[in-house]
């Protein structure tokens, strides 16, 4: 299992567009990926579940992966979040 905490840079938080980018990337991974905030852990490939975490700018989220390519999945997703998920980072 791999796990890493990352801070969300998006000024408007994890709203629909970046959440979609994140979930689609997570769904493309071979590993099973989850994302957690404040103890709530959800399927990272589910845009609706990711939205329900109600993540705002500066929130710390934990990305965990299990199975084949878990390490690569976590580092790729962390990088995607740090780069603003297709949005201009703050």
């Amino acid at each position: 299992m791999a796990e890493q905490v990352v801070q969300l840079p998006n000024p408007s938080g994890l709203h629909a567009r970046p959440a979609k980018v994140f979930a689609e990337a997570a769904a493309d991974m071979d590993a099973e990926v989850t994302v957690a905030k404040d103890g709530d852990e959800v399927n990272a490939a589910s845009v609706l579940s990711v939205l329900t975490l109600d993540c705002h700018q500066g929130d710390e989220i934990t990305i965990r992966a299990q199975g084949q390519g878990a390490d690569e999945a976590v580092s790729a997703l962390v990088e995607l979040v740090e780069d603003g998920l297709g949005e201009q980072p703050a």
């Binding site: 629909a16 979930a23 959800v42 589910s46």
Partner: peptide, 16 residues
């Protein structure tokens, strides 16, 4: 168009 793209993603949601 952005809103309908989000709607499309909702319909494809694996958890749903």
């Amino acid at each position: 168009a952005e809103i309908f793209e989000a709607h499309g993603a909702f319909a494809k949601d694996p958890e749903l």
